[in-house]
Design a protein around this nucleic acid. Structure first.
Lengths: 333, 333
DNA sequence: AGAAATTGATAAAGCGCTTAACTAAAAATG
DNA sequence: CATTTTTAGTTAAGCGCTTTATCAATTTCT
C-alpha cells in the first residue's frame, strides 16, 4: 500500500502535523525530531501526495502549455525550451495542441483549470480573446509567448514581429529584389510581420504585391507550396523573391520553385521565419529570420513562475528581437 | 470564489451526495432532482475539482509520457499522435524529456507518481530497467512504445526494428551496394536494427563493415555528420552507401557527403529511419524506413487506457511493421 | 390494511495533507 | 523562586469530493 503521512508519523512517534512541518520546512521543529522524521521518511520511501496538498491550496507544480501544434518544429522546440526551464524549478508541463481551434482551446483550458494547474502559458495562435481576458480577471496566472496582445494588459514574451518583417524585406531589397511575394497564414503575428514588411518596402518606394492573400490551410509545407505555385505562375512573370512567414511554408515555396524547374536562389530567392532545425536541413539552407526560441522559453517560464509565486504584480511585456540568419536560399538579383 | 459542490447542493436544495451522484451518474436519482441539479451546475458554471476526486481514488485523467527529447521530430510527432488519441478519451499528457539520462527518468517518474498520474507511457530510449520492473510489480499502469523489452513481461507497442534493419540492408543490396556503413547510437532499438541489417547481409554473403562503432553523442545531425565523415574518409575508399539509424543522423550523413564535394545518391546512397517530416524536406528527399507513428501513438494510448480501466489483465506486445519509403537519396551503384 | 420491497435522498466518514489555535515543558527574566 | 517568554509539539478543523450505511417515503404484494 502507499505510505502516507500517517505511517511516517506513527513510525516516528510524532503527530502528522510535525511530519508536515518537516516536509515543508515550516514552523518550529527540534533538531532531533527533525532528523528522526527525515530518517523515517527515507526508510519508508515516503512521497508526499501532491493531490492532497494541492487540495489544501498548495501548488500542483504543474503548468499548462497551449500551443497550436506540437508536431510543428517551431512549437516543439519552444515547448522543449520551456520544459527545460520548468524542470529546473520542479514543474511539469501539460502540453496541449489546439490546432487553432477555439473549441479545443476552451476544452483544454477548462480541463486544466479543474486539474488546478498553477498557471498557463499560451503560445502564439491563441485567438480566443475573451477567454484570456476572463482568466486575467480571475487572477489565474497566464502568460503569452511568441504572440502579442497589444490591446490589453497581460504578461507577454513576444517577438518583435514587425521588425522581423522589416528585416526580411530589407534583406531582400538589399539584394535588389523588387517583386517580392509573401506567404502567410492569417494570424496576429503574421499580420505584424506583414506590416513591418510593407513598411520597409514603402520606405524604399517599392510597392507591395497586388495579388496577396492569406493561405487558409495550416502553416505547413503543402499549403506553402500551393500558394507559392500560384504566385510563381502569375501572368506578370511572378516574383523574384518570396518571403514565407515560417520555415515550413518557406520549404513549400522551395519545393514549388523546384517543381517549376527553376532554381533557388538563382531564379527565385526564398526567405523563411523562425529558424527551426529544418531551416538548416533543406537544400539550399534557408535564409530566415531567427526567433530566439531558447530565450523565449526561458523568459516566459520565469515570468509565469514569478506570477505564480505572487512576486510580480506589475504586468510586463518583454519583446525579444529577431535576427537575420543568412544562408543560401537568397541571392542578389 | 471557486464554486464547489456545496454551492451547487445549497442552490439546488439537496445534499452534496446527491450532487456527486449526478456528476458521476451513479446510484439512484429521481429524474426531477437530477434535472434540477444539472440546471444549477450549468447556471453556476460548476467544474468539479479533480484534485478532490483524485484524492478519493478516482482517476486524474492524466498520463505521463517520458521521451528522450521533445525537440526531436520523431518524438514530437509521436507525442502529438498520442496526445490526439488521449484527447478523445479526455486525458491530458504530461510530457517529459529525459535526454536518455537515468537521473531525469527517475526524477520525472517520482514526480509524476506523486501527482497521481493514471499511467505512464515510456518511449524508446528508456534504459532504466529496474525502475520499469518495479513499476510493473507495483501494478502501476505502464506501457512502452517504440521500444521493446523482450526480456520481460510488459505491455508494449513496438516496431519490428529487426525487420527495419533487414529492409534497409536488402534495399541497399538490391541496388548493388556491398560496402555499406551504418551510423547508430547505442540504444536497444538500434542494436536490433543492426542485427536485422547484419542478418540480411549474411544471407547474401556480404560482410559487415569492420570499423563500425556507435556514435556517442545524441542522435542528431552533427554527430551523424561527424561519423559519416569518418567513414567516408577511410583509407579503403569508404562506403558506397550509408544506413543511418534515424533521419537526423542520415541528414548529417548527407551533409558530410556534400562537404566532401560528392553527390547523393550518385556517389553515396543514404538511408534513414523513422520517416519524419524532415525526410521529405532534405535534398535529396530521403529514402527511409517508415515507422507508423500515428498508429503507434494510437495503439499505445489505447493500451494504457485499457490498463488503467483494468480491462486488460494479460500482457500484450504489439509489434508493428516498418516499411520502405523510397525517395531519391539512394540509387543503383 | 399491514408487511415487505423499492426508491430517492441524506448523514457522515474518510482520502492525505496543511495550518491555526492551543498546551506543556523548558528557558529566560526580574 | 515565581513569572513571563520561548520552544516544541499536538489537536482538530477543513480542503472538495466519493461512498457506505441509513432512513423516510412510496409502492407493491398478500
Amino acid at each position: 500500500m502507499k505510505v502516507t503521512i500517517y505511517d511516517v508519523a506513527r513510525e516516528a512517534n510524532v503527530s502528522i502535523a510535525t511530519v508536515s512541518k518537516v516536509i515543508n520546512n515550516t514552523g518550529r521543529i527540534g533538531e532531533k525530531t527533525k532528523r528522526k522524521v527525515e530518517e523515517v521518511m527515507k526508510r519508508l520511501d515516503y512521497q508526499p501526495n501532491m493531490m492532497a496538498s494541492a487540495l489544501m491550496g498548495k501548488q500542483t507544480k504543474t503548468i499548462g502549455l497551449l500551443i497550436p501544434d506540437l508536431a510543428n518544429p517551431f512549437f516543439s522546440e519552444l515547448a522543449r525550451s520551456i520544459e527545460d526551464r520548468a524542470h529546473e524549478f520542479g514543474y511539469n508541463l501539460v502540453i496541449c495542441s489546439t490546432d487553432y481551434l477555439p473549441e479545443k482551446e476552451n476544452k483544454y483550458l477548462n480541463l486544466l483549470k479543474r486539474k488546478n494547474v498553477d498557471g498557463f502559458i499560451l503560445a502564439s495562435g491563441f485567438e480566443n480573446l475573451e477567454k484570456v481576458e476572463e482568466m486575467v480577471r480571475e487572477h489565474v496566472p497566464v502568460a503569452i509567448v511568441a504572440r502579442d496582445f497589444p490591446m490589453f494588459s497581460i504578461n507577454t514574451v513576444a517577438l518583435d514581429d514587425f521588425m522581423g518583417g522589416y528585416l526580411a524585406a530589407s534583406h531582400l531589397m538589399k539584394l535588389g529584389h523588387q517583386k517580392i511575394a509573401v506567404i502567410a497564414r492569417d494570424v496576429w503575428s503574421n499580420r505584424e510581420r506583414l506590416r513591418g514588411f510593407k513598411q520597409a518596402l514603402e520606405e524604399k518606394n517599392i510597392k507591395f504585391m497586388e495579388n496577396f492573400e492569406y493561405i487558409d490551410g495550416p502553416s505547413h509545407v503543402e499549403p506553402g507550396k500551393k500558394m507559392a505555385l500560384k504566385y510563381l505562375t502569375c501572368d506578370d512573370g511572378g516574383p523574384t523573391a518570396i518571403f514565407a512567414c515560417n520555415d515550413l511554408l518557406a520549404i513549400g515555396a522551395i519545393q514549388a520553385v523546384k517543381e517549376l524547374g527553376k532554381n533557388v536562389p538563382d531564379d527565385v530567392s526564398i526567405m523563411g521565419f523562425d529558424n527551426t532545425l529544418i531551416a538548416t536541413i533543406v537544400e539550399p539552407p534557408l535564409t530566415t529570420i531567427a526567433q530566439p526560441i531558447q530565450n523565449m522559453g526561458k523568459e516566459v517560464l520565469d515570468l509565469i513562475i514569478s506570477m505564480i509565486n505572487g512576486e510580480k504584480k506589475e504586468v510586463m511585456r518583454l519583446t525579444l528581437l529577431p535576427s537575420l540568419v543568412e544562408r543560401n536560399s537568397t541571392s542578389p538579383l
